[in-house]
């Protein structure tokens, strides 16, 4: 089992639901267990659409191709099933849930993973939460604040990583987690991610970004370049450095499309 990839995407086409706007024009990608991948690409190239399609956002629809996650057809599953089988999306734009504290939110998410007759151990939960918050350099009172309600950009991103640390997914999609973070916050987030990766060597990451910056702190094994809804180049960490030097111009898709 360890040799089979955690995620295999073959020829994935995706569009905006209820509209005839195709955004993903055939994406192929394979992620092995314990690997860190990065997808880089200019604004509007379809990175978030890929992440949302993978996690089952109702606003997007896969029209062709297949996605195998943990040996199962991912596209058949509801978003909560995808999460429960180990997929996690750190949102580019986390959503505000007024009146629901982070602690309550996480408690509910963890309880939902248990059998109906099983009760979450609240002491364990509290311990976990506190130590994870410490890892991410968060004040303990943070857990009592309503999810993302009135949070700064940096707080929202940190909250995403906190959720990731608590839910312990097998594959984390991180959509522009670095955007809007100052250098201190960026380091805290990177430190958290690296700590998780070290803790669980089987855990895989797909880091979406359009800057090289984050990749200075989290070293990817593989880097892919996405332009115009396709992956146009894949390689090792050197691809990110190339991009940094020459920009996306050289990766424009062949005019034929």
């Amino acid at each position: 089992m360890s040799d089979t990839p955690i995620l295999t995407i073959r020829n994935l086409h995706g569009k905006v639901a209820d509209e005839d706007i195709e955004i993903l024009h055939g994406v192929d990608l394979e992620i092995g267990r314990g690997e860190i991948h990065a997808i880089m690409g200019p604004n509007g190239s379809g990175k978030s659409t890929l992440a949302k399609t993978l996690s089952g956002h109702p606003g997007y629809e896969a029209t062709d191709g297949e996605v195998i996650f943990e040996g199962e057809d991912l596209l058949e599953q509801e978003p909560d099933e995808r999460s429960q089988s180990g997929l996690f999306l750190a949102f580019q734009y986390p959503v505000e849930i007024p009146g629901v504290s982070i602690a309550n939110f996480l408690r509910t998410a963890l309880q939902a993973r248990l059998d109906e007759d099983e009760e979450l151990d609240l002491f364990d939960f509290q311990d976990q939460l506190l130590s994870r918050m410490e890892l991410l350099d968060m004040d303990p009172t943070f857990a009592e604040r309503a999810v993302n309600d009135g949070f700064s950009g940096g707080e929202k991103k940190r909250n995403e990583i906190l959720q990731m640390a608590m839910l312990q997914p097998k594959l984390a999609l991180m959509d522009e987690t670095d955007s809007g973070l100052d250098i201190d916050a960026l380091q805290v987030v990177a430190h958290g991610v690296n700590a998780l990766a070290k803790e669980n060597p089987e855990m895989s990451f797909l880091i979406i970004t359009h800057y090289q910056r984050l990749l200075n702190y989290i070293r990817p094994d593989h880097v892919h370049v996405m332009v115009g809804g396709r992956i146009v180049r894949s390689g090792g960490p050197e691809v990110a450095e190339e991009l940094e030097a020459s920009g996306y111009e050289s990766f424009k898709p062949a005019a034929a499309g």
């Binding site: 996690s55 509801e78 978003p79 909560d80 999306l89 959503v95 998410a109 939902a112 993973r113 839910l167």
Partner: peptide
């Protein structure tokens, strides 16, 4: 819808 998706993406049934 976005709120519901956010919560469901954390494993909560609808």
């Amino acid at each position: 819808q976005d709120s519901l998706f956010y919560l469901m993406s954390r494993g909560m049934p609808r």
